[in-house]
Amino acid sequence: MTSTAFRIGGDLTIRRLGFGAMHLPTEPVQARETSRAVARRAVELGVTLIDTAYLYGGGANEKLLAEALHPYPDGLLITTKVGVARSGPAGEWKLDGRPAVLREQVERALLRLRVERIELLQLHRIDPGTPLADQVGTLRDLRDEGKIGRIGLSEVGVDELDEAREIVDVASVQNRYSLLDREHEPVLAACEAAGIAFLPWRPVAWGESGTNAEVAAVAAEVAATPTQVALAWLLGHSSVILPIPGTARIDHLEENLAADRLELAPAQRDRLDRLSEVA
């Protein structure tokens, strides 16, 4: 039986199947109301990990989650990301890991989320224009000040992960990964070896799973949807994987969260495993 729980950083127990809030619209008014309802339903269904970021609407997504869920129930982890800012020449979004920018974004996220500490704060991307030691070191300092509980990284390679871990404990990695997209398998292996949570974004390949004949065949055999099969495969592939599928619809949310009750037979897993050879 696949375990449904994981301890991030060795001490923060959460349900492995979480929710990515990126797709929740914050306007117009009716869409915002629906988004709040989706977030609340996720918590009702037992989600304890919700992922957001400053990039998602310049903090609007964080505000939405606070509106919907604050005061937060015990055990709910809302993780956010910093390190992307409108600091391009024309005010466009760009990677920005300068210490002053990271510090300001964390301070503002605390206000938007209405918390005194962000239990898991992730660096959205590594800014190639700023030394990694400065970026990770700033997050370490904020952790030491009590404003961050645990530190994560996003879209990193093995070497970058190793370099960051020489500076600070890394509790999570959030890379693109799915049944049909296993480019970051080496990073996943490094996370497994170190007990680091691996949060795949785009975990169901945005619908591509449904067009794959083998995935569709397995789904028919187990009376599930291709999306559920893709999520169940992830949960069984590695005990450190914490998928965060996102949606703006309650029916899709309920479908996604039922995936951790789906058991795939060894032979079915073998067939899905082999998809990496042709992906």
Results as ranks from 00 to 15, higher is better:
Ser3His: 01
Phe6Glu: 02
Ile8Ser: 06
Gly9Ile: 01
Asp11Ala: 14
Ile14Lys: 03
Arg15Ile: 03
Arg16His: 07
Arg16Met: 08
Phe19Ile: 03
Ala21His: 13
Pro28His: 03
Pro28Ile: 09
Arg32Asn: 05
Glu33Ser: 12
Val38Ile: 13
Val38His: 09
Arg41Lys: 14
Glu44Thr: 13
Leu45Cys: 14
Gly46Tyr: 11
Val47Ala: 10
Ile50Cys: 06
Asp51Ser: 11
Thr52Met: 06
Leu55Asn: 07
Tyr56Ile: 12
Tyr56Leu: 08
Gly59Glu: 10
Leu65Lys: 09
Thr79His: 08
Thr79Ser: 15
Lys81Glu: 05
Val84Ala: 10
Ala85Pro: 09
Arg86Ile: 00
Ser87Trp: 04
Ser87Met: 08
Gly88Ile: 10
Gly88Thr: 06
Gly88Met: 07
Ala90Gln: 10
Ala90Arg: 14
Gly91Ser: 08
Trp93Arg: 14
Lys94Thr: 15
Leu95Pro: 13
Leu95Gly: 10
Asp96Glu: 06
Pro99Phe: 01
Pro99Ala: 06
Gln105Ala: 01
Gln105Phe: 01
Ala109Thr: 11
Ala109Asn: 08
Leu113Tyr: 04
Arg114Gly: 03
Arg114Val: 08
Glu116Arg: 03
Arg117Trp: 01
Glu119Lys: 08
Leu121Arg: 08
Ile126Asp: 04
Thr130Gln: 11
Leu132Met: 15
Asp134Met: 10
Thr138Ser: 11
Thr138Asn: 09
Thr138Lys: 14
Arg140Phe: 01
Arg143Glu: 01
Gly146His: 04
Gly149Cys: 01
Arg150Val: 02
Glu155Lys: 11
Val158Pro: 09
Asp162Leu: 14
Glu163Asp: 13
Ala164Ile: 11
Ala164Glu: 04
Arg165Ile: 00
Arg176Leu: 07
Arg176Ala: 13
Tyr177Ala: 02
Asp181Asn: 15
Asp181Thr: 12
Pro186Ala: 05
Leu188Asp: 06
Ala190Met: 05
Ala190Lys: 14
Glu192Val: 12
Ala194Glu: 15
Gly195Met: 05
Phe198Tyr: 15
Leu199Ile: 14
Pro200Thr: 02
Gly207Asp: 05
Ala216Thr: 09
Ala219Trp: 03
Ala224Gly: 02
Thr225Phe: 00
Gln228His: 09
Trp233Leu: 03
Ile241Cys: 00
Arg249Leu: 02
Asn256Pro: 07
Glu263Ser: 12
Arg269Val: 15
Asp273Cys: 04
Asp273Phe: 01
Leu275Met: 04
Ala279Thr: 11
